[in-house]
């Protein structure tokens, strides 16, 4: 794997993770301020834009690599999203949740490698 392809895999993964964090923030805010406000619309639009970027980066990668090669990286999204939610959204990440997320990530990698 070249440095360039690694950067693209990382970019598609990070844009997906970032989209989830942005969408989570948008939806949480609706509990107080409802759906009809500009901030919510901008955040959801930002989340959808990030998911679209991730989608097309993945589509480009799929043209160059096998799905079985790319899918294990998707598995890593579970552990990365848990860490990002703890850092950026200040969610409580217990040891049990961390071990659970790690096992799910490892399991997905194993399912897609075999």
């Amino acid at each position: 794997m070249t440095f360039l392809s690694f950067s693209f895999i990382l970019a598609s993964l990070l844009s997906f993770v970032w989209a989830q964090v942005v969408l989570k923030r948008a939806m949480e805010a609706t509990r107080k301020s409802g759906l009809r406000n500009l901030r919510f619309i901008l955040r959801v639009a930002g989340g959808i834009a990030l998911m679209t970027i991730s989608f097309f980066l993945t589509l480009g990668l799929l043209q160059r690599f096998d799905l079985s090669y790319l899918y294990p990286f998707q598995g890593l999204s579970v552990i990365i999203i848990s860490l990002m939610a703890a850092v950026m959204l200040k969610e409580k990440l217990t040891l049990q949740l961390t071990v659970g997320a790690l096992l799910i990530s490892t399991g997905i990698v194993l399912v897609s490698l075999s």
């Binding site: 049990q96 071990v99 997320a101 799910i104 990530s105 399991g107 194993l110 075999s114």
Partner: peptide, 22 residues
């Protein structure tokens, strides 16, 4: 589904149980 794939499925199930318990 290969043996390794079943092992991966088992790991995911254990991980899900750990996350769902709290």
């Amino acid at each position: 589904i290969s043996i390794w794939r079943w092992c991966g499925i088992a790991l995911v199930v254990i991980g899900l149980a750990l996350v769902a318990k709290p």
